[in-house]
């Protein structure tokens, strides 16, 4: 029992220890993790499907094909129409708000846990790191699933619009046609979707986690959700 000795400085935890604690938390809270992750999946699926649909549209117009069903004026023009930009921006907003909301809820219901960990000697930075790791992992896996679902959705839509031609001109890789708009291609859109989901989840959880970690433990433990 140490007595009278001056109070020492709290040590930092090794990264691996933080990683273990965060994975254990994800595993035990699997059901709840899935719900949070589903929020991310939905947001990214929506965004990627709209975006991918647009990519496919451009690629097939580029190839001289036209939608067999869609007879909007815009489809005959080359490039991204205002309507498409608007749709993508809208879905991006829905995605950002949806993910921020999922993460906020997931952190808020754990204020008590945060207060408790601080009672046991956790540094504020450790608490934030824990949430960063958990949300980063949730963000990436949720977004990957979302991006794949979104792609599948866009492909189905493309099949409906262009029939099997879709597969002949499938924009898998980035392309820069002479006189057309730049195309990102399916792979890049999926990767961007994953990246975006992860970044949004990390940002969305680190702000509330930081706020909770800064609270005196007594206050953090008072919150009833």
């Amino acid at each position: 029992m140490q007595q009278r000795t001056p109070i020492e400085e709290q040590i930092d935890l090794p990264f691996l220890e933080s990683l273990r604690i965060s994975f254990q938390s994800l595993k035990i809270r699997f059901g709840r993790s899935i719900i949070t992750t589903a929020g991310i999946t939905l947001g990214i699926a929506f965004l990627v499907s709209v975006w991918m649909n647009n990519e496919i549209g451009i690629a097939l117009q580029e190839s001289g094909r036209q939608s067999t069903i869609n007879t909007f004026e815009e489809t005959t023009q080359k490039g991204i129409s205002t309507k498409d930009i608007w749709l993508i921006v809208m879905s991006l907003i829905v995605c950002v708000v949806g993910i921020a909301n999922s993460m906020l809820m997931a952190v808020t219901e754990r204020f008590r846990e945060i207060g408790t960990m601080k009672c046991l000697g956790a540094l504020d930075g450790f608490v934030v790191r824990l949430f960063l790791l958990e949300s980063g992992f949730q963000g990436f896996s949720g977004a990957l699933i979302g991006a794949l679902i979104g792609t599948l959705g866009a492909v189905l839509l493309g099949l409906k619009d262009y029939g099997l031609d879709l597969f002949f001109y499938f924009p898998l890789f980035p392309a820069q046609p002479e006189d057309g708009p730049r195309q990102l291609g399916v792979i890049v859109v999926i990767l961007l979707g994953c990246f975006l989901g992860m970044v949004l989840a990390v940002i969305g959880s680190s702000f509330p986690a930081w706020r909770a970690a800064k609270l005196p433990p007594a206050e953090a433990m008072r919150t009833e959700v």
């Binding site: 109070i7 400085e9 709290q10 938390s25 809270r29 846990e113 601080k118 009672c119 000697g121 956790a122």
Partner: peptide, 26 residues
């Protein structure tokens, strides 16, 4: 300092609460 307070809570005091405050995931 913040670090000293964390070390204080970690080493010098043990807390017992009415509502237990166990971490539900552990």
């Amino acid at each position: 300092t913040q670090r000293q307070i964390a070390a204080f809570r970690c080493h010098r005091v043990g807390y017992i609460f009415q509502s237990y405050n166990l971490l539900p995931v552990r």
